[in-house]
Structures are given as structure tokens and as C-alpha cells.
């Protein structure tokens, strides 16, 4: 089956998922007063989530493609949360509707000034980035019967009982929590620009190390060449396990980092554009 035929086959598109996506977007439009860019961000976020979970691309994981699992992880943990957070207006614009909602956001309830909060969100996001990857790789390994990314699990392993929906939900929720310090809908609740860049940079290091590990461990895995390419011949995207694993690592690394780099650049440009605060100093000179 060619990828085009597979992609255009209606059976591979989730109609329920599409309806849910449209309903959520309609609800968003009705419930919040938003500007055009926020609407676009919400549309992008929902479209990406749908593409990851309800489209034929998302279904490619049933053919055992590790790289597609990684792609889902990138979308749910790293990209969609940014768009979602940017889609929500600040409370000032929607005081009545958002007041109670934002109270549930960790930054509000735990105290945004608390450095431990940033460390906790960073650790949580990093742990889920790595944990989510190995959980998904383990599930794939149990499903296919051979090692994925160094993990070789039995078909009756406990990981097979972890619902995919739960993994995806955790990725999305943790993605939102992890990126709140940088993209909180209320600007005053965000980290200062340079601190936000440092936060993103260190997060970038985490996805870099994960991506490198996944990509380069493919070369050293002794059994990876033993699994011939016809193992995935039914897949609309046939590729060797080695290529699949390298692609998975590279996807996490390069696009993953670029997401953070672009975000960091945008934050810094806003920082340079920011209007100066009124100076309280009045003396003409001071001695050092």
C-alpha cells in the first residue's frame, strides 16, 4: 500500500476525533473573547492534536513505527501546549470566565515567585519527555516482539496494559504545565525573558540528549540489523528498524530544539521591544 492511498483512505481518518475537534474549537470561539491570532493558535493546536491522534499519520504507530510515536510525543508535549497557552486570552480580557479557570493553573495556586515551582515544572516536563518515550518504546517492543531503542519486552508485559489515551493525556497536560512558566496566558505570571530563555535552553538540552541517545544508540544496537526491512513492509512508510530509530531520535533533537530556539528568539525580541520602565533616579551622576 502506498502512502498516498493509505493517507487518502477515509477509514484511516477518525471521524469522531474530527467532530470532537470541531466541537472543542466551536466551544472555544463561543466561550472566550479572543483576537484573531489567538483563534489561529487554537486552530493550529487542535489541528496538530488531531493530526497526531486521529489522522492516518497517527495510525502509523500500528505498523510499529517508533519515529511516529516520537512525532506524537513532540506534538503533544512540546508544540501543541505552546499553541494552546497562546490561544488563551489574559484574564483581564475575560475576567468572569477565566478567573476560576486560571486559579487551577499551577502558577497561580503554588505561587509564581517560588523558584521551586519552576524547577518542579522543568523536572516534570523532562521526566515525562524521557519516561513517555521509553513507555511508548516499550509498548512498541511488546507489540512487535523485538527490541525498540534498546528495550525488549514480552508481549504480556505490564506496559501493554497502559492505555494509549492515558499516555497522550499525560503528555499534553504535562506539556502545558511545563511550558506555563514561559507561556502563561497572563504575561505577569511568566518568567522574566532571560530566565525564560534559560528555561527553554535547558529544556532544549533535555530533548537534545534524548534525541542523541535514541539516534546514535541505533548504530550500536547489535540486533537492529538482524531485523530485516521486510518486517515493516506492510507499513505505508517501509523503513528498517535502524532508520526508524534514527529518525525518531533526530525528530526529537532537531525539530524539538528548533521549537525552543524559535520560542527563545521570539521572547528575546519582545524583551528588546519592551517599553522602558519610568526611571526613579534623579541624580545626574553617581560615584562608584
Amino acid at each position: 500500500m502506498s502512502f498516498t492511498i493509505y493517507f487518502l483512505d477515509p477509514a484511516n481518518w477518525s471521524i469522531i476525533g474530527l467532530i470532537v475537534t470541531i466541537l472543542v474549537f466551536a466551544g472555544y470561539l463561543l466561550f472566550f473573547k479572543t483576537n484573531t491570532s489567538q483563534k489561529v493558535f487554537m486552530l493550529l493546536a487542535l489541528s496538530l492534536i488531531y493530526m497526531a491522534l486521529g489522522s492516518p499519520i497517527g495510525s502509523l504507530t500500528s505498523f510499529g513505527l517508533h519515529s511516529i510515536t516520537m512525532l506524537k510525543q513532540i506534538v503533544l508535549l512540546m508544540v501543541a501546549p505552546i499553541f494552546l497557552l497562546r490561544a488563551f486570552p489574559s484574564r483581564a480580557a475575560n475576567e468572569k470566565r477565566l478567573g476560576s479557570l486560571y486559579n487551577w493553573l499551577p502558577g497561580e495556586t503554588m505561587g509564581i515567585k517560588n523558584t521551586n515551582y519552576f524547577i518542579a515544572t522543568w523536572i516534570l516536563m523532562s521526566a515525562v519527555m524521557w519516561g513517555g518515550h521509553f513507555l511508548s518504546a516499550g509498548k512498541l517492543s511488546a507489540q512487535l516482539g523485538h527490541a525498540i531503542c534498546g528495550l525488549s519486552l514480552q508481549s504480556n508485559s505490564w506496559v501493554t496494559h497502559v492505555p494509549n489515551g492515558l499516555i497522550f493525556s499525560i503528555l499534553l497536560v504535562v506539556g502545558i504545565i511545563g511550558l506555563l512558566p514561559v507561556f502563561h496566558p497572563m504575561p505577569e505570571k511568566r518568567l522574566k525573558p532571560v530566565q525564560a530563555v534559560a528555561y527553554l535552553f535547558t529544556a532544549c538540552l533535555v530533548c537534545t540528549v534524548l534525541g542523541l541517545y535514541v539516534a546514535f544508540s541505533a548504530t550500536s544496537a547489535p540486533n537492529i540489523e538482524a531485523v530485516p526491512v521486510f518486517d515493516t513492509v506492510l507499513s505505508p512508510l517501509p523503513m528498517s528498524l535502524r532508520t526508524d530509530q534514527e529518525l525518531a531520535g533526530m525528530l526529537m533533537w532537531v525539530p524539538g530544539c528548533i521549537i525552543y530556539v524559535i520560542s527563545a528568539v521570539e521572547i528575546l525580541l519582545s524583551w528588546y521591544n519592551a517599553a522602558p520602565a519610568t526611571s526613579k533616579k534623579t541624580t545626574e551622576h553617581f560615584t562608584v
Binding site: V197, F201, C204, C257, Y260, V261, A264, V265, L268, L269, Y272, N273
Partner: peptide
């Protein structure tokens, strides 16, 4: 600002 910010991009990339 572009000269300054592009340095960050270079450093990261």
C-alpha cells in the same frame, strides 16, 4: 535587537 538575538540563536544551534 536582531544582532543580539541572532547570537542566542547561533549559540543554541
Amino acid at each position: 535587537k536582531f544582532v543580539a538575538v541572532s547570537s542566542i540563536a547561533i549559540a543554541l544551534l
